[in-house]
Design a binder for these strands. Structure first.
Lengths: 337, 337
DNA sequence: TTCCCCCGTCGAAGCGCTTCGACGTCACGC
DNA sequence: GCGTGACGTCGAAGCGCTTCGACGGGGGAA
């Protein structure tokens, strides 16, 4: 293994000079720097991560805690993880993958052993048991999602409430007066996943504001459940013409079910969704949707963390404005005379 | 921060004794060990990962390289990643997440800086540019998937060839004489992804062996492409009664398309698939399938790596036998008189 | 009883890097 | 012309842990 002393000897300088040339923490003459860089290349030098971490008390590793639970859409998680890794690399950091399963103990472990410098936590619950720990930890963290009491924490997410509102407003502007929300599986609400609830809030608020009749229907992530919900909607709200879907796996089955029940999208029924663009585009009828900007959230989370590591203050809350893309699943309400 | 010397003082022993008590590399009397463990708990001691890595030249971190490409089924990757993390934790290791994008340079970096002790590489291509590097690296690695020349490497995967055979044999036993394989998107074959090709090999070999008429059809991952393939199959092989699908996103759309073309599954057409059980179970018609055992592959990959790290020899190739689960999509061929 | 060896523990020497203080040199201002 | 910084570099002191060699003591073999 080639070490910093080898480089130093080869370049005719002291090890500390090599270190400073690498870190830029002290001025080094252009000429010396060139010589050092040449030696590094020639010898193929790579600083030892452990030694560096020990001496500098910085590991240049971020922890990313991913959820495993039922009812969350896996591709979104993956896309998010990839964007975190990519963003982290831009800042010369790596990413350690932790599962939710490890829980608080896992967070404490990687933080206390100085394995990581900072943490990103996904799938935050309204009353997440990890919150006190994250507040107490000496390492900065960023949460994806908003808990009930976000004070003292840094949180970022799509503004799901605004997303819910946006979907309803879109339908209202198209003339729809009776709308329904097909939401996440019941267990997601039961455990208090913030984003699911916020969609409901936004949906309901916008419907009330606009004087629309509305209802909310949690739905299991199966085609059969989708079918049941479709039947129920028809039975209970025969005047229904607008549906908002916030449940990825059910989007396509639901549209199919409506079709089989004699409701054509968008002729008889307009559908909007909150889901990844990729999904919205690949349904039989491309769906007007608010995108889940996982890539942007991931990148922004890393930026926030880097600022915090650098000692800069960052806002406690970052809400990304929803953007709705018009596709083929929405149309003005057909007025029945 | 509480360090090993603090624990040592508190327990009335020397730091080295604490270290040995922790690692078990030298015998420590039961009584002393108890005292040390009590001190550790009381003081909340956690060994500093960097210091440990520096002194022991073991970071206790594994690198996991995940693919990002088109045509691979994301939930499988995620499930695999989670199983690697879980298995690694059982061996007191953590997992560093790398993206394919980082390429060879990324592998070299984490290996040469001693950030990781070993590597797991997913989505190996037949002529993967990373192979020479992996052979040359001083750290052990395990590949998920088999390249063209696996000598000197440790590889593990589902036996996709056997899986292809199994699907055909099942159809043959049910009396089907004309079969087709709907495979991965063309680009997957173009770039030489081994597992896709092996399915084709197995499929073709078994069909030939059984004297079945067969054809192979790569297929884009979109409902429209599925529909086109279905139409093409009907046109070109009117006697077709058995289909093997190795393309997750297309499984359901394909069955739908057949339905719309007047072919009922399994009455007119038997379908088997190679895909995650979770998907096979959630199609309109639950599909008889060979599962992709991502969880098992992940866990086994970690075990292999641990053995290699421990100096034990491991087999170069580990092929997991395919297992077919009978569901509703297969039936004996209806003999037309 | 004596010798030897093994058990349990200690002390010290690093692992490879960063960082702090120090020092010489040069340019600039007064 | 001399003080005063700033610049560029060096040496040494760790960072917290593991590990090697050593050593005292006790038990078994001879």
């Amino acid at each position: 293994m080639v070490k910093i002393t080898d480089v130093a000897r080869h370049a005719g300088v002291s090890p500390s000079t090599v270190s400073y040339a690498l870190s830029g923490k002290r001025p080094i003459s252009e000429e010396t720097r060139q010589r050092i860089e040449a030696s590094i290349r020639e010898l193929g030098y790579r600083p030892h991560a452990g030694a560096r971490a020990l001496a500098s008390s910085r590991s240049n590793v971020l922890a990313l805690v991913v959820p495993l639970r039922a009812g969350i859409h896996v591709p979104v998680v993956m896309q998010f993880a990839v964007s975190v890794v990519t963003a982290a690399r831009r800042h010369d950091h790596d990413v350690l993958l932790l599962t939710q399963e490890e829980g608080e103990e896992g967070l404490r472990r990687v933080a206390d052993t100085a394995l990581v410098d900072a943490l990103i936590v996904m799938d935050v619950q309204l009353h997440d048991p990890r919150l006190p720990l994250l507040r107490a930890l000496d390492r900065p963290s960023v949460l994806i999602g908003f808990p009930a009491g976000p004070a003292g924490l840094t949180c970022i997410d799509l503004d799901f409430k605004a997303a819910g509102e946006l979907c309803v407003e879109r339908l209202a502007r198209l003339g729809h007066r009776v709308v329904a929300l097909v939401g996440s599986p019941p267990e997601v609400y039961v455990r208090g996943t913030a984003f699911a609830q916020r969609v409901v809030e936004g949906f309901t608020a916008a419907a009330d504001r606009g004087g629309l009749a509305s209802s909310v229907h949690p739905c299991e992530a199966s085609p059969a459940a989708a079918r049941r919900v479709a039947e129920q909607l028809l039975r209970e709200q025969p005047a229904l013409t607008g549906v908002v879907v916030h449940n990825e796996p059910v989007l396509e089955p639901l549209i199919d079910a409506f079709g089989q029940l004699g409701l054509r999208v968008p002729v008889d029924l307009s559908v909007t969704a909150i889901c990844p663009d990729e999904l919205a585009e690949n349904v039989r009828v491309p769906v007007t949707s608010v995108a889940i900007p996982s890539t942007e959230v991931g990148a922004r989370a890393v930026e926030l963390l880097m600022k915090k590591l650098g000692g800069t203050d960052v806002p406690e809350a970052t809400l990304l404005a929803p953007r709705l893309t018009e596709r083929a699943s929405t149309a003005p309400r057909t007025l029945t005379p």
